[in-house]
């Protein structure tokens, strides 16, 4: 049984009003425990709406979301419990910080879960460790921290709820390359150690290709592709056609293939590309 099953999911904003707009259209897919899924798509492709239906912030207009064999809307009063199991880190999450200290802010979610003080304390410490926050920072006001540190406090706030599924919407937006690399590495380490499920939304194919096992591509509210990372990148040209930016390296490989060279195009790292291109040179030399 998959951990999360999405069946014929559709979502329409303001049905029956002037603002009516279908954002997600008949999406079905299953997510297994331990999956690391990258989600890409344009602004307005429905990906933000899609992830917000997964933790019950939006109720699907049609279709079902089945978590561990149970429809999450079976008992609408218990929807809060779904939100504890499907944790969501929004874009620019640092804008939601409000407590006196970073520690208290991280504890907000666990507190809402009704955990004991000692349990909360332990979870806060663990979560802070995952995102690389030094203990001395925890006593500070979140507003005194640097931009990158604030972001980490906010992410820790969701991790501390120890959700089975962690969803992150553009967690690296606005960070510099160094900050981005560190954060992605931390998310990746969190996924490895906890062996749980992570969904990561990003505009950057480079980022996604580096850490995701599977990729979900959304286009105009529809599921355009959902497959292993390598298989999705093999469709690089199609992705470009729907206006997505593919990694520079993939573009180079497609360029070589267009000139009649037999290279694979499911390549997205410099390492892979070097190996592939060196192969090209050797047979030529012999001839």
């Amino acid at each position: 049984m998959p951990l999360l099953e999405i069946k014929d999911l559709s979502f329409t904003y303001g049905p029956g009003t002037v603002f009516e707009k279908k954002a997600v259209n008949n999406v079905s897919l299953s997510i297994e425990k331990g999956d690391f899924i990258g989600i890409i798509g344009h602004t307005g492709s429905g990906k933000s709406t899609f992830i917000q239906t997964l933790n019950g912030l939006y109720k699907p207009t049609e279709g079902q979301i089945i978590l561990d064999g149970k429809d999450i809307w079976e008992n609408p009063k218990k929807i809060r419990n779904v939100r504890f199991r499907v944790g969501m880190v929004f874009q620019y999450p640092e804008y939601q910080l409000f407590e006196e200290t970073a520690e208290k802010d991280i504890a907000y979610g666990p507190k809402n879960m009704g955990l004991s003080d000692s349990e909360i304390k332990e979870r806060v410490m663990k979560a802070a460790k995952f995102v690389g926050l030094k203990p001395e920072l925890l006593k500070k006001s979140p507003f005194e921290l640097s931009g990158g540190e604030k972001r980490r406090v906010a992410i820790a706030g969701v991790i501390a709820m120890e959700p089975d599924i962690l969803i992150l919407d553009e967690p690296t937006a606005g960070l510099d390359p160094n900050g981005r690399d560190i954060l992605l590495a931390q998310i990746s380490a969190y996924h490895r150690e906890k062996e749980n499920t992570v969904l990561l939304v990003s505009h950057s194919m480079e980022d996604i290709s580096r850490i995701a096992d599977k990729i979900l591509v959304m286009n105009k509210g529809n599921m355009f592709a959902f497959d292993d990372t390598k298989k999705v990148f093999a469709r690089g040209e199609e992705l470009e056609k729907i206006g997505l930016r593919i990694p520079e390296i993939t573009k180079i490989m497609i360029g070589l293939k267009d000139r009649g060279y037999n290279v694979s195009t499911d390549i997205y790292s410099v390492e892979q590309a070097v190996n592939e291109i060196i192969k090209l040179k050797k047979p030529n030399r012999k001839g």
Binding site: R83, G87, M88, F90, Y95, Q96, N112, M113, G157, V158
Partner: peptide, 11 residues
């Protein structure tokens, strides 16, 4: 947006 974010943390 802030309301959604806090709801996601169980508010």
């Amino acid at each position: 947006k802030i309301m959604s974010a806090q709801k996601a943390r169980g508010a």
